[in-house]
Design a binder for these strands. Structure first.
Length: 623
DNA sequence: CTAGGGTTAG
């Protein structure tokens, strides 16, 4: 109900209709206004001798709430509502058409309820995001002495997942065991899903391993869980195992593995998946298409992403936003803005995520004025109220451009709650522009939020180290120890012949380690004669220059690039993926290496892409 | 009447 209402307000009060194409507007209107000839499914003269079966079949012919309400009235006047099956169907249809108010009213009036009535009601609430009523109804069910069954439990577990209610979820898990439903695939796979999405991936896996009959859906849940928690390699292990066990993945399973490819950032694997999708002739629907746009974009090929986008027959706001976001993290802000215009012309209404992607694109391309304009336009013209994420993009946009005072003023003036991210964006800008005087206040506020993210402490320590404030560096380090946080180790991945190799800093575990270091040595010599001076500012420790040089020398991305150079033919682009951001020194290193080796180097770091070609980076050194 | 899928700042 809320959704319908807010959409209606949006359309009328902000004049959005002018962005609709005529047909889209007509479709939107015909959905909400009943068609007179359709609304009378059963004439009042007809209803006298009708039986329950007749009304059930009539209910399934209903196309809108008005028709349902009419049948509801007829069923009530004839007394057929007392037939439990009829009442349950009516309950189901109301919930399906999002008329939870009627459904709940009917449910409360029912003199007799069976397990179906309970689960339809509980399920109706979950599907419409009304978790309070969902849990409330579930409690009523238990208090009334009934047992929760294999139908009602998956619904409540799903509600736990959506609300991140791990405690409630664990309680319900024990209810599952008490009722002996731990062998039911529906119950179990929702439990696995719940644990995975709530960050308890090990619990999810344990439960999954104990399931005697793992079907396609259960396996897909587990694969998605691994991708979501940042372990896409594990997703692949399970996907391969699944096929070995004789399962043919369906469309949903494919979307899931495509998503894992996006997380992995491995181009060859992505192409393999794409070939498989073509060979098996899975249709390129909105979900699969959108996932593939994201996959190619996150593997570094914006062109392949766009190709998929252009080939899709149907696109919705998510597909457009995904493509806009793709241009954003490749630093192509102008293209993102062009696409936004096309999106409006085709009648698709932007949502909050579209604007996050747009503002992000502007900030990473230095399009300050466009960003500012969009930011002021979004709520006025499109009814999207800025939230913290929008503000964070704006702080980033202004901050990168060196307008730190404006950024700070924006933070101070905003009315939504500030989070860690917004202070980080600000501090990131302070780091770029070496504005130490504004740091202390922001640092204090960030630390007061008791952040558990080691990256935040590293950022601060980095800034202080750069300014030579070693006492403050030590303070931050102590705080990290006290809060038991360790620096996240940096890794770089490179894919050669369909195998993904991982490198850590100073890594010598690779079989060709000797060659790699020789290559690195010869590269460095060539670079130095071209004027390269290692930039030790990027090294965070308060140590001797000698030691610093050693650390810098073997940063994981340098090792991966050296390996790429010896393991792939001349001229092949080198694609690497990092879990952290590239440091300034490695960025310079990549630029020079792209020149002397005549190779394109495509780096995906924790935030965005860098395309190095003949000494120039696509980020314009603006990152 | 039940389970799985696509876009999101730093």
């Amino acid at each position: 109900m809320f959704k319908l209402k807010s959409q209606a307000t949006l359309l009328s009060s902000h004049g959005i209709l002018r962005f609709f194409s005529a047909s889209a507007a007509a479709a939107a209107i015909s959905d909400t206004i009943p068609q007179p000839q359709q609304s009378t499914l059963v004439s009042n003269a007809q209803i006298k001798d009708m039986n329950p079966e007749f009304f059930i079949s009539t209910l399934f012919k209903c196309r809108n709430i008005f028709q349902i309400k009419q049948v509801h009235a007829q069923v009530t006047t004839t007394g057929i509502i007392h037939d439990l099956v009829v009442a349950n169907k009516l309950l189901y249809i109301c919930a399906k058409h999002k008329d939870l108010v009627s459904a709940h009213l009917l449910f409360n009036k029912m003199e007799e309820r069976d397990p179906v009535s309970w689960s339809v009601m509980i399920g109706g609430f979950v599907r419409n995001g009304d978790y309070d009523h969902c849990f409330q109804t579930f409690r009523e069910l238990i208090r009334g002495g009934s047992k929760p069954d294999n139908f009602s439990l998956p619904f409540v577990i799903k509600a736990c997942r959506d609300t991140m209610g791990l405690i409630m979820g664990t309680l319900i898990h024990s209810t599952v065991l008490k009722n002996g439903l731990h062998l039911d695939n529906f119950v179990c796979s929702t439990l696995v899903d719940m644990y995975a999405k709530c960050g308890m991936i090990d619990n999810a896996k344990k439960l999954f391993d104990r399931m005697p009959k793992k079907d396609l859906v259960t396996r897909t849940v587990m694969i998605a869980g691994y991708a979501e928690c940042g372990k896409p390699n594990e997703s692949w292990v399970l996907f391969d195992q699944m096929r070995k066990d004789g399962f043919v993945p369906d469309k949903v399973a494919m979307v899931t593995i495509v998503n894992a490819c996006a997380k992995l950032g491995a181009m060859n694997k992505s192409r393999l998946v794409h070939d498989y999708i073509c060979a098996k002739r899975y249709s390129l629907d909105v979900e699969l298409g959108t996932a593939m746009i994201d996959m190619y974009a996150k593997c570094g090929s914006i062109d392949s992403a766009r190709e998929i986008f252009d080939r899709m027959e149907q696109r919705n706001v998510i597909s457009w936003s995904a493509m806009i976001g793709a241009y954003g993290y490749h630093g192509q802000g102008r293209e993102a803005l062009d696409l936004f215009r096309m999106m409006l012309n085709s009648g698709v209404i932007p949502n909050r995520i579209t604007f996050i992607s747009l503002l992000y694109a502007c900030s990473h391309a230095g399009l300050v004025d466009d960003g500012l304009q969009l930011f002021s336009l979004m709520s006025v013209s499109y009814g999207v109220r800025p939230d913290v994420k929008h503000y964070t993009c704006m702080v980033d946009l202004l901050g990168r451009a060196g307008r730190l005072d404006e950024a700070l003023r924006l933070i101070e003036s905003m009315k939504v709650e500030k989070d860690e991210g917004i202070w980080c964006a600000f501090l990131g800008a302070c780091r770029i522009h070496k504005q130490v005087d504004l740091v202390d206040k922001a640092a204090k506020l960030l630390l007061s939020l008791q952040t558990q993210n080691p990256g935040h402490y590293i950022l601060l320590s980095n800034i202080y180290a750069n300014a030579g404030r070693w006492k403050d560096v030590a303070k931050i380090r102590n705080l990290m120890t006290k809060r038991r946080l360790k620096k996240i180790p940096g890794y770089t991945w490179i894919e050669v012949d369909n195998i993904i190799y991982q490198f850590g800093a100073g890594d010598n575990s690779h079989l060709r380690s000797k060659e790699i270091y020789e290559m690195l040595k010869s590269l460095t010599q060539k670079l130095e004669s071209a004027g390269y001076v290692p930039d030790t500012n990027s090294v965070l420790h308060d140590v001797d220059e000698e030691v610093k040089l050693g650390i810098l020398y073997a940063h994981s991305e340098k090792l991966a690039i050296a390996f790429g150079l010896i393991a792939t033919p001349d001229g092949t682009p080198i694609r690497i993926t990092k879990n952290l951001r590239v440091c300034g020194d490695c960025h310079t290193f990549c630029k020079l290496v792209s020149t002397i080796t005549q190779r394109d180097i495509i780096v995906r770091d924790a935030n965005r892409f860098h395309h190095f070609k003949e000494g120039i980076c696509s980020c314009g050194d603006y990152w």
